[in-house]
Design a binder for these strands. Sequence first.
RNA 1: GGCCGGUUCGUCUAUCGGUUAGGACAGCCCCCUUUCACGGGGCAAAGACGGGUUCGAUUCCCGUACCGGCUACCA
Length: 508
Amino acid sequence: MSKKVRVRFAPSPTGGLHLGGVRTVLFNYLFAKQQGGDFIVRIEDTDQARFVAGAEEYIFNTLKWCGLEPDESPVHGGPFSPYRQSERKASYKLYAEQLVKDGFAYYAFDTPAELEEMRSKFKTAENPSPQYNQSLRDKMRNSLTLGQQEVDTFLAEGVPYVIRIKVPLDETVVFTDMIRGQVSFHTSQVDDKVLLKADGMPTYHLAVVVDDYLMKISHAFRGEEWLPSAPVHILLWKYLGWEADMPQWAHLPLILKPDGNGKLSKRDGDRLGFPVFAMDWTDPKTNETTTGFKEHGFLPEAFVNLLAMLGWNDGTDNEIFTLDELVERFSMERVHKGGAKFDYEKAKWYNHEWIRKLEVKSLETGVRAEFEKKSISITDEVLLEKVIGLVKDRCTLLPDFVQQGSFFFQTPVTVDTDAIKPKWDDKKNMFFTELIRAYELSTLWEVHDLEREFKELAAANQLKPGDLMLPFRVMLVGGKFGPGVFDIAALIGKEETIKRIQHTMSLL
RNA sequence: GGCCGGUUCGUCUAUCGGUUAGGACAGCCCCCUUUCACGGGGCAAAGACGGGUUCGAUUCCCGUACCGGCUACCA
């Protein structure tokens, strides 16, 4: 029996969850579920300075909306508690000290000013950013250059220090990435990364390795931006003596800006007018709100679907998948290596397809919420369902339902009489006056009866129905839009239809 | 600058050495629709460049170019 699959998503609560982040969760989830394994969410809140209150809750709300509920997490519990790194703080220090004892790491007492000085001193045109590495560490104040006694004194006196990994001089770190195949780095290019910060918190490098080991993580998926630090992590797995338990790595391609270059950032959304976060996120520090896909009127099914297709496909022409279908079809082998530019038009297309695909019942809650946002309360459940069924094919985003359907629930506030006036004459006036009378007497109020009566009356008045339908439409909905006119009349009822005709005629 | 990664229509992509290089979004045209849409049909649109390997390269190898990532006591 093979080792159980355990995949973790490890967000840091420093803000909202953007597209790339949610896609990483998605792929973690898909792989875990497909393999019958566990999907774990661990919170990496080691960065005190950037930690934002409320961000953790936001992350779990997002996961919930997307339907990606974890098996283990700080809020769901699990056998490897705690799942917050801030609550695991004590153990990281032990492992860091163990590494020092074994000669794989060292104490460094350099102050930020000294580091700054080193960087400017060794900065050259060829090397614009000197690293704290094999050659430079001999010139700094650390337990490699200082005498044992001095180090002990510093430690005893509480002089601030960090623990850095001692990267070997001349080795090649080779590993297999599930997406990229064999990747190798020469250690001369890897710097002595800080493992334990002066505040006693671990850096991501130490924490991710320790936690993945302790939580028995079998597969580690993360964004491609982590590829360069992979050798540090692999060295750590080795130095901690856990090499046999090292997870399989997979570095996911990045999601890029639609225009220009670079990875997609939240600023791009504001700039280009589309959401980049899953849900609205208001940063309590700056009070700035970044809009989300949810609030833009995307369905979670569509959001998950479009994210999955940004970097993966099943090899067929099929582009529409449910979450369950994705779990079934997903394969790491088919995840792309290259980054993908985000295309908002295509994203909207996915939502349109999902609105068409979903049944009226499943759309009801979302549509009702859109109407409520516009202060249109809906009391007639049956009418709502009929309206959704009638207009859903012409809606791309949820707010479109209001545009396409508000006039079913309330009399249009404004009527675009300018669209009628130029061609309005006595003959038409007479026709509509007669139409009101005919409809008043009508006992049947069905679509085809309404249409038949309308056309018969038009013929009797020697008018072309085509010239009359536009005015009729404007009278009923207020403008040149909406589904079939007789469908509308049938749904809003006799009384309301007549009322709207009369009202508009009084304006002409 | 260095290291690592990537490169097929404008965009997302299919292609397991032999194809008229396929699909989708966007664009354009036509049809449907007595509104606006939806929908249907069609058009246009791609293998970065240069070398190899091979009977044959989009596909494999090398180089160049371009793009991206990283180069913090951030993740």
